[in-house]
Simulated scan of single mutants.
Amino acid sequence: MIYGIGTDICDVRRIRASWEKHGERFVRRILSDVEYATWQSRHARWPERGVRYLATRFSAKEAFSKAVGMGMRMPMTWRSCEIGKLPSGQPVIVLHGALKAWFESHDLVAHVTVTDESDYAASFVVVEYRNPPVQAS
């Protein structure tokens, strides 16, 4: 049973402008420590790839916040929601702290997909009950 669905499209140029204006302070606000390390590596090799990575993470976190119905308010924070990947490359949502506790207490599981194309990054998240509640008839 679906708990919520979220989608987001992000203008990569807007993310680039924020990064150019605020520098690493902006990046640190959005990314977890693990994501930040990946961003540094990608940005060092090819700055545009770093910007796209940042935009896809921004978009996926926005989509997740919509799927759980919180927006960006506690316990949802940029850094408590991490977009990781499996060895296959499939993106996954990794939660931390109070957000993880809230999510687990509601017995939820999330599925995420991300994509980017020149000027845009987009994400789609489906959150469902791990064990759907029994509905009275």
Rank of each mutant, 00 (worst) to 15 (best):
F124T: 07
S80W: 04
W39G: 05
V109H: 11
R49C: 05
V92N: 11
K100D: 07
V12R: 03
S88W: 13
D119H: 15
M70A: 08
K85I: 10
A60F: 02
V127F: 00
K100L: 15
N131F: 12
A121N: 05
D11H: 07
G71Q: 04
G50R: 08
V51A: 02
P91L: 15
L99G: 03
R45E: 06
V126R: 09
W19G: 02
P132V: 04
W39M: 09
R42I: 01
A98R: 15
R57D: 01
S105M: 11
Y36R: 02
S118N: 13
R73L: 05
W46E: 10
R79P: 01
D33N: 06
D116W: 12
E104I: 08
V134M: 11
T38Q: 13
V114H: 05
Y129M: 05
A55G: 03
W39V: 00
I9K: 08
M1Q: 10
R13T: 03
L54R: 04
E35A: 10
S137L: 15
G97R: 06
R57L: 12
A101R: 13
W39K: 01
I30R: 01
D11A: 14
D33M: 07
P47F: 12
R42W: 07
P47K: 13
F58S: 06
R14A: 13
